[in-house]
Simulated assay, not measured.
Amino acid sequence: MNPDRRARALSSLRGSAVGDAFGACFDDVINHGALRSRTLLPGPWLWTDDTQMACSIFAVLNAHGRIDQEVLARSFAEHYDIYRRYGPGTSRILRLMRQKGYHWGELARQARGGRGSWGNGAAMRVAPLGAWFADDLDRVVEEATASAVVTHTHPDAVAGAVAVAVAAALSSAQPHVRGVELLDAVAARTPRGSVRSKIREARFVSDSSTAAAELGVGHETSALDTVPFCLWVVANHGHDFADSCWTAASAGGDSDTTCAIIGGIVGAGPGIDVVPPDWLTRCEPLPEWATATIPLL
């Protein structure tokens, strides 16, 4: 095991968990006053399926040093927890795998009438993978693709996962790359298609309100209407973990997922205090099964 890779990925995973749990606080309209005043809610902040699945990504890398799709699928199914608010498509896949023994490949291809899911689920969990392979962007693309198709086979979903993973890798290994330069660098590694085109459109957006309106904030829970906005926030606010998450949550939409993606990318950056300590103490801790050094079989 490469200790540097593990440390980078664990930092990203913690950032993703904190972002996820923070964003989930604002799904309830009762908390919107705190959102407007940027007042932190008391803990514990509980994370969602975004973190539950990111934990499996980290655990598989920690045990195998690469994405073993069979092991990853088993981990997703084994740790499926209905109370973590999974999307209906992924929930169906994991329930059928665990209860009926169906193979992930068959189930993933069935989504959306055989087109495969274009949801943001593959993107929301992948940032630790980008941090893990930050020294090899070609490998980031390859492994992110492998991790995505276990549940999301549509090209948009795969492209969204690749884009987030590349952004996390750049945050970790090239933190000086920001703004338009970051968006261009991510787009250059993202597969051709709608997601890459929208990331390139993001470079011309100047404020968060316009970004939310033109790029989308996950109302459709698709990669296309989630990932470009997250990358815009990172490009423009990524020097500050708290400001990034507040900006995303204030835009509304699928805020636990947008903040999880942003938190995972920013959390991959160098420095021991990337995530504010008072945010970490409020967040539900990561599960022991995810961070243990015992091999995942």
Rank of each mutant, 00 (worst) to 15 (best):
D243V: 08
G23T: 04
S117V: 06
A167Q: 09
A54R: 02
L137K: 02
D50N: 11
P128H: 06
D4V: 15
F204V: 13
A134M: 01
H237V: 05
T90A: 14
D136W: 00
R6K: 14
L10W: 08
D81E: 13
A202R: 00
A185L: 10
L280F: 01
C245I: 13
D50C: 09
G101D: 08
G116W: 02
V180H: 07
H79K: 13
M124F: 09
L107Y: 06
T48Y: 02
F229D: 07
H154K: 05
R8G: 02
A77M: 03
K198V: 02
A111C: 12
A249I: 10
R36S: 14
I199C: 10
A242G: 05
R115G: 11
S255Q: 10
G269N: 05
N62V: 03
D273Y: 12
N62E: 14
A211V: 06
A163P: 11
P285H: 02
S11A: 15
A159L: 09
A290D: 08
G19P: 03
W47I: 03
V162L: 00
S222N: 05
D68N: 15
G271A: 05
Q174H: 12
R189T: 00
A54C: 03
S250Y: 09
V266N: 09
E78C: 08
L35Q: 07
L94D: 05
A54V: 10
V177A: 05
S56G: 12
H154R: 08
A168D: 03
M124Y: 01
P155W: 07
D4I: 14
C245M: 11
D68T: 04
G15V: 12
